[in-house]
Write a protein that binds this DNA or RNA. Sequence first.
DNA 1: CATGAATGAGTATTCATTCAT
DNA 2: TATGAATGAATACTCATTCAT
Lengths: 228, 228, 228, 228
Amino acid sequence: MRNSIQVKNPTAVETLKRAPGRPKDDSLAARRQEEILEVATKTFAADGYQNADLQEVADELGVAKGTLYRYFPSKRDLFLACVDHGRSRLQSQVESSVMHAEDPLKRIAAAIRAFFSFFDAHPELVELIIQERAEFRDRNKHTYFFQCDKDEDDPWEQLIAEQIRVRRMRSVPVKRITDVLSNLVYGTIFSNYFTGRHESLEAQTDDILDVVFNGILMDQNGDPINGS
Amino acid sequence: MRNSIQVKNPTAVETLKRAPGRPKDDSLAARRQEEILEVATKTFAADGYQNADLQEVADELGVAKGTLYRYFPSKRDLFLACVDHGRSRLQSQVESSVMHAEDPLKRIAAAIRAFFSFFDAHPELVELIIQERAEFRDRNKHTYFFQCDKDEDDPWEQLIAEQIRVRRMRSVPVKRITDVLSNLVYGTIFSNYFTGRHESLEAQTDDILDVVFNGILMDQNGDPINGS
Amino acid sequence: MRNSIQVKNPTAVETLKRAPGRPKDDSLAARRQEEILEVATKTFAADGYQNADLQEVADELGVAKGTLYRYFPSKRDLFLACVDHGRSRLQSQVESSVMHAEDPLKRIAAAIRAFFSFFDAHPELVELIIQERAEFRDRNKHTYFFQCDKDEDDPWEQLIAEQIRVRRMRSVPVKRITDVLSNLVYGTIFSNYFTGRHESLEAQTDDILDVVFNGILMDQNGDPINGS
Amino acid sequence: MRNSIQVKNPTAVETLKRAPGRPKDDSLAARRQEEILEVATKTFAADGYQNADLQEVADELGVAKGTLYRYFPSKRDLFLACVDHGRSRLQSQVESSVMHAEDPLKRIAAAIRAFFSFFDAHPELVELIIQERAEFRDRNKHTYFFQCDKDEDDPWEQLIAEQIRVRRMRSVPVKRITDVLSNLVYGTIFSNYFTGRHESLEAQTDDILDVVFNGILMDQNGDPINGS
DNA sequence: CATGAATGAGTATTCATTCAT
DNA sequence: TATGAATGAATACTCATTCAT
């Protein structure tokens, strides 16, 4: 724990009454940490968690292996920091993209598009997520999309409930919709990687939305479809 | 080559003029192989590929580690045999379930249901598939569902094309439909496991089909929905 | 020990009053043993003692690995039997070649020639001898040439002593001559193999004899040559 | 590459503006490497290549096994480094001993004596050479004595050719002489070890030279001796 | 702080040998 | 007697982690 470095941005006040002697250059430490995460992410994605050699990371960074341990107390911690780092970048990218859309349906579209766009730009994160699940099964599970941990005030659920109320969406249990959307987005990303395709994910946004919004059956169809 | 086991059951007649020495007991070999796959699958799913120790498998089976190597030349081979074994069982279960349905839409429903049902019964296979991707990225990629390698004569695509022709489905590119279905099914399975939920997958079949068949928007909606 | 097979040729008398039941086919056993030695020699020479796999020997022979253990109680024993087998064949070949020469100097020449000729025909034996020394340093040492264990009645020493007596050879300590001859012959064989040359050894016989018999200095030279 | 140790001794000036962190102690590394070679040579000679356990070497040195791998990337490499190390020490000892002799015949004598003297002092090297041949048959073959790779400018051949020209040596093909000398020296060394004798080799120098220089036959003998 | 030398637990794989059939 | 299935001891090598400098 002694080894973990706190990222602390000195506020204006702190800057004024600085301690005597050479001040801790926290921003340097923060920059280092960021650099390490970046290189480690690449390495973990390329080699997998178990096969990744921290020496490789150190070499690429031009530092000694011991240095890594000053910033992250263990390989495991470094790896998990990489995943979390990627995850939070993803989250903020999605969130910011949603802001620009007013129309609720367009918000959904924007979110999916942003999601795909992020993974197009950062395919390593898919690898990290797979590796995370493969090695650390028991880590507290994350949902990445259309699902928040606290069920009640999930903004996506609220958005969809509202659309149903205004009769823009069919009266379907809200959870069913968020689940399908979330699973479909995930499935698309993983399928894309599992099958080795490297097409743009973003390009598939419209296709997905077309199906989910409109269904695949003709409108007049009133038969009960499902049921074995 | 020395490790490959020949399957040859001596008939009664052959038994009469047997060769000198202990005869090969091929059924024993086949049984052993099956037993090993079963236990190894459990172990790999529980510990992950890298952490799994073949000694554990041997101990559980009550045999020596060397014995495993008589049947599978390496840890890697044993693992991949486990995955392939699971995969083929999945495939045959899905295929047989589809046979019982006449109506095309019900065939789709049956397939999805069988798929989910299999993973409900054999959650280890999800683990193995993840492990396979995590450790052996470069293995020839498998599609498990709604996608065959040869595009032309894919029966699922034919089935859907036919439904469009008879105006039971909207005129949407066939590939778009199979992709969405496939990705949705996958995503559901993985999400279920990634998030640690252990609800029945099979129970979600109807929900998924409701959304995919009917869409989530009200019918009268003619607005262009998507587009950033 | 129970496993070692005695080679026993039934004499005429034994043949007459044979035991009841199927007689032991000792010649079969002897033949097997010979076959095994032959194949094992090749394998040991090709792979080295440690790397040689008895399975390889068994496969080549078309028998099971366990069968080898009926003829030789261990890998070590099998190997040493191979060396001894080769050694005795060498010895008898040399001995028989010497018989044909009358003149003492020609006997020496014949022996060397036979020695070289044998190793030309059976280079594996060089390998075995090296392997024997490498793995079983402590085995009772063998001399192969121009040196018998019992110093007194060594026929080669007697032959040379006689040549000195009749003033055909210079008056040099007999041991010096046998040592030089023996070491030279050995050195030639090993050098040939250590340097990877595969020229005929036999062809070098005359060159060697020329030097040893006549020396390399001009006759008139009376200077003391050696001494540091 | 990570394991290779750079030999760089910081000069006094460089020491003043030293880089941050623990400086590389190159002389330590060189010393370690030398120590390892020394102990490993003893171990390999005592146990043979295959039976030698690097743990034994590490224990003797009081270091961990992993440390050995910092200096030599594999058991094989360590072994071959031992052989090469011994070989080069031999070579330089022979070369320096030759320098002190003026007379060509005395140069030959000095070389042989130095050769023998070295192996008297370092019998392990004989073992290593045998082990090298037994385990790494295909390594580029070395000649140790009286034979250089490039035939033309071999100084020994030149020396002998000169002696023939000045009629100090008989007119015999030069190669015949170098071969006989080389093989005799080798054979003496190996015989000595193969037969388990541990007499001084050096003491045999004069005997050998007497035979090779003067031959064993009486001078007046003009008969053709050899021929089958 | 940074370094890099040292550590040593951990593990897949081989193959001589045994023995029930 | 021959077989071949089973055994399990033996071992080189890796790399996360520590810590003296």
